[in-house]
Design a binder for these strands. Sequence first.
DNA 1: TACTTATATAAGTCAACACTAATTTGCCTG
DNA 2: CAGGCAAATTAGTGTTGACTTATATAAGTA
Lengths: 138, 138
Amino acid sequence: MLTYISIGWHPEGVHAFDVLGDPVRRRILELLTAGEQAAGAVSAVVQDEFGISQPAVSQHLRVLRDHGFTTVRADGARRLYSVDPEPLQDIDAWLEQYRRFWTQRLDALGTELVRGRRARRSSSGRPPRNRKPRREGE
Amino acid sequence: MLTYISIGWHPEGVHAFDVLGDPVRRRILELLTAGEQAAGAVSAVVQDEFGISQPAVSQHLRVLRDHGFTTVRADGARRLYSVDPEPLQDIDAWLEQYRRFWTQRLDALGTELVRGRRARRSSSGRPPRNRKPRREGE
DNA sequence: TACTTATATAAGTCAACACTAATTTGCCTG
DNA sequence: CAGGCAAATTAGTGTTGACTTATATAAGTA
């Protein structure tokens, strides 16, 4: 049947979340905030921290590349990666529509404080259900 | 074997990306920006747009709930969902370390414009690879 | 009470994805 | 050129997670 006709909401930049879903990839990006790094350098750190192989890291680098999170530059046999902020900016833009939810909350809090109110929260807490699914490790 | 011993980098707010990796869940959140909605209302829209079943939507709602993206309130048999911005705020905070990459770029661009330069971009274009897998629709 | 509506859960299936080991490609140096 | 790094690719495997259908729970209504 397949409907889902690609409505508006940020045609691009949407996959960005998929990419960032992986902790290894987030870590790689963080390493790159220090500036341009050779694949090998990144790989060394990540292999050590996560205990995965070089090809695994290379594959993550590929995903980041393919989705525009990094740019690469050749230096002899080495590949120098840097952050390309574009997809991150897309996420930032996507977040925009939610910012009011916390600024609102801050404003309300501010008001309360000014008025010296000691509001009793209506205990809207979500039910104690807290099954945090699979992934046995932890 | 499971190494990965939970290093530092943002202990919380990290699963958030996993949750937002799914377009259905992003859509649900967007629907909730209009305000508190009954599960059924959300479900109707999403079922129509994505062509998935009610339980599927319910499961997505569960994920959003379990990860703190929504709060729920009972109204008779209905469940009224609202946005809880906390995890989104976490993401916003995580983005912070990357903002300089685009503000920087803007500054540089500004400088260039002022100087009347017509910089030639180093054609760092990423390869045309564009595999976009899952959810055949689109 | 029985019937319906609203929503969640259970159990099972299938495809995607993060790995691994093996190999390839390319550059650099003796 | 041979050999050795640096990095990417290939092929195969196990686990996860997004779905399905069927069913359960619970509240409203006749």
